[in-house]
Structures are given as structure tokens and as C-alpha cells.
Design a binder for these strands. Structure first.
Lengths: 381, 381
DNA sequence: CAAGTATATTTGTACGTACTACTAGTATAA
DNA sequence: TTATACTAGTAGTACGTACAAATATACTTG
């Protein structure tokens, strides 16, 4: 029941398993390169504070699985797996899709776009969701590195924060496994990416409200991913370009953990505060948040859009479900998924042909954000 | 003294090597047959007059080379090498999930439930969506039969119609690949299944309205899948049990292709028809349809639930997005997905152990439908 | 400088002990 | 008859020791 390749086992409660996983991680993230000598048994004993027997158990397993080889008197060395085909069950045509979530919001649409195209092309699609958790992301990257995948489509986890798994991505490149990122990307990797111009998106949202005469506009932005920080940038830019002053109180940021509590509470506070002038418009990080805030506004007995205007982002199905259809910014969704699928297949072809994928003239595709006007925004009276 | 035999080593001066060769000889000459228990470690200690450590070294090697397998608490057994094509290979653990749709409605939740559990267990999840198309279903079944999958979770395509792919399912059984069906099933296969008691569900929907004094209740049912036909059955039963007459005009059936047009048109016609008495309540096949019909009712300037009550099915996220929160019937969604994942792993274990999966005492799991009262239904005045 | 030697380091084999986790069969109780 | 509890037996993990065999390096010597 234990292992699948690397770390597939959940409970690594045994000491030798911990040692084993630690060593294997170092192999996978590139700390140990092929033919490099790893720590000696006695060093490992000290490092992990275990007996030599335990260390030997761990190393023995890894040797048997082909990760290491030992030379008596010399040491233990990292094996060179790149040439061996022993993992290859000639299982061809596998694509992995890693997203933060699979069941929520616009992700199902993106995934469907990719899935339908890829399975048309005879590829098999494996899905992994990180729940916006870096540990999960690492686990899946390990899986992809150990098993055979032709390419990977990744939506980065917490893209605004520094990523602890950078080494795994570099290892993907070393193993010549093409990957591309959607929605956001880790800046330091400069990967091929398919994204929306989020800064422009935030600009468009805000500009639309300013055009309609709004001057007191609150912005809610999720700031642990790149989308949120860029959209906020656009929001600021729109104010600046129009020569509008902006109160710091009008920007509310939150992160994944707070998403269902903080924005709602903050808006309740703002709307109930009779001292301050009530804002006339709201820019939302996305439609999901906008829908949450709709309820708050309703409960404050304010009318949309007469009393207050609100703009979403992503044009998710939610935007049309509510009674007041939501003004929002278009997200290509399934179109983006399909494009990602096409591009990753191109990259696979290219990497087969030249062993290097440096023949893509640009390393990104930008979607231009477009405002979709519905009924949640109106002239400020 | 020395055998070239298998291990190729000429000088087997080490003790553990002697033990190893001795055991291996007994396997090769047939003394130990596949799945037969070999001597326990303590017996071997006595036989060869060596320590347990040495015995374990010998056995460990043989296990790694695929000659033996160990079961904690039971003993060490001779492996059956005849079936494994690749002796030393760690086979990946793959599960396929085939659903009609992946991005719509409640399917993402179901899939998430299964995906999160399976990847926790170190399985890799491959997704296939048929778009309710039998040809696609066949294509994916072919893929699963030709490549290596340990188990399959299937939501049947058009489960109310006779299925042209029955042979593929029978082939799964022949190849000893466990599968289970969710939401619905093909009756003729009598597969293991995890479903809602849809008939009871339709009954609960209708009964709730009858209790509130409604007598003129229209039912909309999608009749190309099993869920729809069963829910309709429950709707009829509720009328019969309450001694209510039922006009044939009050039942409206549709199929997948018509789902976004026919029900809407029919309801528009019914509501605009001034000759007939206007119905006071609607039973919907699912929430998706209910939401569609909400718009029709709004456009006819009727109030929910004052003028007309409406009941959905599935308790999807949609039910709480609209301004009038929808009364509906619970669907376990992610819970069902997780349960399906657990059961399929059990089935895989069982099929490995006994080569036949006939040890499941029942061949189905029923979820009891529960009504979730929100604000789209009210007393008939 | 080159060859040989001594030494330290590293992995390999082998022994021992102790306890844990699990299985299967048996005895017991309901 | 059917559960339940117990027990003996089995493999799993983990600590320890000792010495052997191979290797790498520093040192000595001709």
C-alpha cells in the first residue's frame, strides 16, 4: 500500500521513510545531481539522529528503486535516471493539469476547454488540485517528475508569494518536460504563460465606474495571487490617470483564508458607518466576491445599481444567475483552456524535434480584458 | 557449491547469499508454488543457523527481485511471476473517472470529492467526459481497456436508454478491472452503484408541495437518463398516494438536446395561456432547470413563492445564488465522490486478493433524499 | 618524483536485542 | 450460531555492536 514512485505514501511515520523521503526530495529538486556523492551513512545518522541500520534501510530502498547506487569504500551516489527507460511503460500521451481548485468557480470551464481538446487529440488528461497549498503542489510535481508525462499545464499556487518549489520547476526543464502556466505565473521562472492582462482588467473595471461619474470607489483585492495584485495596480492607475484622489481606506486586501469573511465584514462596517460618506461603487477582485457582497448590500437595504454600483471580474456563470445581472470583465475560460492545450501540444512537438523549446518567439499570450456591461452599474447621481 | 542460476554470482560466500540461493532453488524447482507460504523467518534462522537479520537480508533481496512477497502477520509467500510482464516494475496506480460533463453543475463537486481522496491515497486520476454521447463513452472505454487502469468510476451516459456499449463493460469484468457507477446505472449490468433514491426524491419534492396545499403542480423531467424517469415516477406516486388527479398536460418531458429550449417554451406557453387555470407549483428535474424557469416566471411578472412555488433537485451551489433561495433536494455531491473513491479502492483490493469481487454483500449504496426548505415554496392560498 | 604504506573513511556482512503491527486461529461469551 | 476477546505467531521497525572489504587520501621511503 505504501509507495507510488516517490512520496505517494501519505503516512511516512517510520523513521527510515522520513530519511528516504528527505533524500529523494533532494534528488528530485536537483540538490543531488546524477553521479554526485550523497552524504555518507554516518553523516546521515547524525543529520537525522537515527541508527545506521535505519539509514541503510532507507538507502537500500532507494537503491532498489533505482534512485541511488552504492560503491563500497567510496560512498553512495545519485543515479542517472535520464537515460533509463525503466519507468517507461511506453505509456504515451499523458498530460497533467494542475490547478488550485477543480470544482469551484471558473476552473471547471478552463479544465473542460483543455480536456475536450486533449482527449480529441488522443491524450489522456490527469487532474491535480492543490487547494492553493504549496505542499500539495510539491507532491504533484514530484509525481510528474517520477512518472511519465509529456507535458504539464499549471495554474500556479499563491503566485504572488515566493514559491518554495522553484527547484521542481527547474527540474522539469532539465528533464525536458514542457510546461506552461495559466492565469498567473512565477516571475522568476519566466515560463511560457497564458494570462489575462490583469492590470488592464483592473483599469477597465475602474475606468468604467469613473466614466459614470463615480468618485468614491472601494476596491477589494485578493493579494496572495498575482491576479489580485495586478488588478489592484490597474485600479490605482485608473485613479491616477483621471487625477482622482484615493483614500487608503478605499482599498481592502485579503488573502485566500480570509476570502469568505473579511471582505463581507469590511463592507458591512463601511455601509453602516454613518459618519463617512457612503461609497457609490465597488470594484471586486472577482465575480465570486461580488456575489457575496451583493447579499451584504441587499441586507443594508440598498438598491443595485441605483444606490451603489458593483463590477465583478471573470464573467463567470454566476454573473448571470443573480437577479441583477453583473457587470464584469470577460475571462476566456474554456477558450483559455483549449488554447493552453494547443500550446502545450506544440511545445511537446517542439521539444521532441529540437530537444530545446527555445523556438517560441514570445513566451506569453495575453488576453485583452473586455468589459461586459450588464445591470449592476449605473450613472452616479 | 556455486550456482550461476539466476543471480549470476559465482562466489556466494556470504551467508545471506547462501540462504537466498537456497530459497530461490526451491522456487525454481517448484518446491514453493505461487502463493504458497514459505518457511517463516524464525524457521529459516534455525535451518541455516544464522541470525534473523541475515534471513531478512536474503528475503529482502528476493522480494525486491520479485520472487517473493511478504504479508505482515501472515508470512512470506512465493510470488506468482507468470502474470507480471514486467517483473521489477512498480506499476502506477491509475483510476479513471468518466462523467457526462466535467465543468457543469454538480459534477465538479463530485469529481473533487473523488479526486482529493484518490490523490491522498497516491492514485493518479484521469478524467474523461462524454458530453452525454455514447460514441465518446465507447472511445474512453476502449482507452481504459487498452491501457492500464486499476479501476473506473463511471457516470453512465443516457442511462435511461439502451446502451450500445454493454460489451465494453462486460469486457471490463472479464479483464478484472473493477468499476462502479454513480448517479445512475445500466440496469442490465447490475453493477455496483452509488445513487440517490431518485424515485423517493421525486416523491419528496411533490409531497412537500401537496402538503402546502398545492393541487395543480407541473412536473418537468429529463427522460433520457434514469434519474429523470425515476423522479417522474416519484412525482406520480405522490399524486397517487394523496388521491390527487393528475392531468397529462402537467407532465413535461424533455431530453438533453432540448434542455435549454423546450421547458422554457412550454412554461411560457402555460403561463400565458389564460384559458387554463394557472398552476401554483412546479417540480423541476434539477436546480439548473429551476433557475432557468425562474427567469421565465419573473418575466411573466409573477412572484416566487407568492404566486408560484418551485422545487429544484440536487442542492447545487446555484440554489443559493439567486435572490430567492431555492427549495431543493439534497445531493451529497463531493461526499458521493469521496465514497465512490473509497469503494473503488476497496474493490481493487478485493479483486487483487480473490481474483473475484463477489464478496461485496450488497451491490449498491443508496443515499436518502432530504428536502432542503428555502424560500421558493410557500402555502397555496 | 614515483611507488609503496599506513590510516581514515565508507560501505558490506553479521550478530544481538527489543518492541510494534498485523494476522489467523482458538477459546469464550452472548 | 454468532460475535467478541484473546493469544500465538509472523513480519516490520529500530536500536545497538563488531568486524570485513573496498576505497581515497596523506604520508613515507627509495
Amino acid at each position: 500500500m505504501n509507495f507510488v514512485g516517490v512520496s505517494g505514501c501519505i503516512y511516512m511515520q517510520t523513521k527510515y521513510n522520513k530519511v528516504k523521503e528527505a533524500i529523494q526530495s533532494k534528488i528530485l529538486d536537483g540538490t543531488f545531481e546524477p553521479h554526485q556523492k550523497i552524504s555518507s551513512e554516518s553523516e546521515l545518522m547524525k543529520q537525522f539522529n537515527v541508527s545506521r541500520h535505519t539509514v541503510r534501510l532507507a538507502i537500500g530502498d532507494l537503491v532498489n528503486q533505482g534512485w541511488l547506487y552504492r560503491e563500497q569504500g567510496a560512498g553512495t551516489f545519485c543515479a542517472d535516471r535520464s537515460k533509463e527507460e525503466h519507468t517507461g511503460l511506453i505509456q504515451q500521451k499523458n498530460i497533467a493539469i494542475i490547478t488550485t481548485y477543480i470544482s469551484d468557480y471558473i476552473f471547471p470551464s478552463i479544465i473542460r476547454g483543455a480536456e475536450s481538446y486533449l482527449s480529441e487529440q488522443g491524450y489522456q488528461v490527469s487532474l491535480f488540485s492543490t487547494n492553493n497549498n504549496h505542499d500539495m503542489e510539491r507532491k504533484f510535481l514530484e509525481k510528474i517528475l517520477t512518472q511519465h508525462f509529456d507535458g504539464v499545464i499549471i495554474e500556479p499556487t499563491r503566485s504572488a508569494l515566493s514559491n518554495p518549489n522553484i527547484n521542481y520547476y527547474l527540474n522539469l526543464e532539465r528533464q525536458n518536460i514542457p510546461y506552461l502556466m495559466i492565469n498567473a505565473y512565477y516571475d522568476e521562472l519566466e515560463p511560457f504563460r497564458i494570462v489575462i492582462d490583469d492590470e488592464q482588467g483592473g483599469y477597465v473595471q475602474t475606468e468604467h465606474l469613473i466614466e459614470q461619474g463615480h468618485r468614491n470607489i472601494i476596491g477589494f483585492f485578493k493579494t496572495d495571487d498575482m491576479q489580485g495584485t495586478k488588478r489592484m495596480k490597474g485600479y490605482l492607475k485608473a485613479h491616477r490617470m483621471n487625477g482622482l484622489e484615493l483614500s487608503p481606506n478605499n482599498i481592502i486586501t485579503y488573502n485566500t483564508e480570509e476570502k469568505s469573511t473579511k471582505p463581507v465584514e469590511m463592507l458591512e462596517k463601511i455601509l453602516s458607518d454613518t459618519n463617512e460618506e457612503r461609497p457609490t461603487a465597488i470594484v471586486c477582485y472577482n465575480d465570486e466576491l461580488a456575489i457575496n457582497l451583493l447579499d451584504v448590500i441587499r441586507e443594508a437595504n440598498l438598491k443595485i445599481p441605483d444606490d451603489i454600483s458593483i463590477v465583478g471580474f471573470d464573467n463567470s456563470f454566476m454573473a448571470e444567475l443573480t437577479e441583477v445581472k453583473l457587470t464584469t470583465v470577460a475571462h476566456p475560460q474554456s477558450e483559455m483552456g483549449e488554447l493552453a492545450a494547443k500550446v502545450i501540444l506544440d511545445m511537446i512537438e517542439a521539444s521532441k524535434a529540437t530537444q530545446r523549446k527555445e523556438n517560441l518567439e514570445k513566451d506569453y499570450i495575453h488576453f485583452e480584458p473586455k468589459l461586459i456591461k450588464r445591470h449592476s452599474t449605473a450613472e452616479n447621481k
